[in-house]
Simulated assay, not measured.
Amino acid sequence: MMSNLFSIFDPSTNLFNLSLNWISTIIGLLFIPYSFWMIPNRYYYFWNLILNKLHNEFKTLLKNNYFQGSTFIFISLFSFVMFNNFLGLFPYIFTSTSHLVMTLSLSLPLWLSFMMYGWLNNYQHMFSHMIPQGTPSILMPFMVMIETISNIIRPGTLAVRLTANMIAGHLLMTLLSNTGNNMNLIMIFFLILVQILLLILESSVAIIQSYVIAILSTLYSSEVN
């Protein structure tokens, strides 16, 4: 019996007393079939189609800031987060994206690099973002304060959004599964059906959240220039 519901997210996997939890961030490579590396094949064409769609969308969002290879970091971010989100749906695999240590490590360096680049190279454009066009003079100090706070909390909102969404689905599935011991046979079949539907929902959330964090990172980078 769990002493705490959130203990399902505790790092507990070890081998010979060596903590192997964070190895789950790269274990996704083991799920890629060998034939993926043989060009051409179905897996390669399918994944390449997805990456091309993402490249075109990120290129549109970057607008005048686009240069060759500038979308690579955001496509890599999408792929990395999506693989880790999906791995968290497998039993006995540590869900790294449900921890703020992981999500903040992704969002904070990106945001800091955008801010440093913008303030060092284009500070006039950054100052103009503080006060929207047409703001009355009396509201300008408040607008600067509000815009500054909203800019500072951006990496936190990126990290918390991903973490909260991954935690919520796992907690719901865990709560439902713990009620199965007291159910009759018909209710257990119904519970299994609900769990399957929840698993499908969580799979879509895994894709959507990785897409959201990549899109927002692209939008933040397009604002600094």
Score class of each variant (00 low, 15 high):
Pro33Gln: 03
Asn41Thr: 12
Asn21Cys: 11
Met143Cys: 06
Asn85Arg: 09
Ile196Tyr: 09
Ser70Gln: 10
Ser12Glu: 13
Phe189Gly: 07
Ile27Phe: 15
Ile131Asp: 03
Arg154Thr: 12
Ile26Gly: 11
Trp111Gly: 04
Ser150Asp: 04
Gly180Ile: 11
Leu162His: 07
Lys63Leu: 04
Phe190Met: 11
Leu201Tyr: 11
Leu158Ser: 15
Gln195Ser: 13
Met102Phe: 14
Ile75Trp: 00
Leu87Phe: 05
Asn121Ala: 01
Asn184Glu: 04
Ile26Met: 12
Asn41Glu: 08
Tyr34Val: 15
Lys59Ile: 00
Leu112Cys: 10
Tyr211Ile: 04
Ser35Val: 14
Met82Lys: 11
Pro91His: 03
Leu61Met: 13
Ser96Arg: 10
Met187Tyr: 03
Ile27Ser: 15
Ala214His: 02
Tyr34Asn: 15
Leu20Gly: 03
Val160Trp: 04
Met143Ala: 09
Ser137His: 12
Ile23Gly: 05
Tyr45Cys: 09
Gly28Lys: 00
Met102Asp: 05
His129Thr: 11
Asn181Arg: 10
Leu191Asn: 02
Gln124Asn: 14
Ile153Thr: 07
Ser24Cys: 08
Asn178Tyr: 10
Pro33Leu: 01
Glu57Ser: 10
Phe90Gln: 09
Val101Gly: 14
Pro40Glu: 07
Tyr123Cys: 07
Ala164Ser: 13
Ile93Met: 12
Lys63Gly: 03
Asn21Asp: 15
Ser70Ile: 02
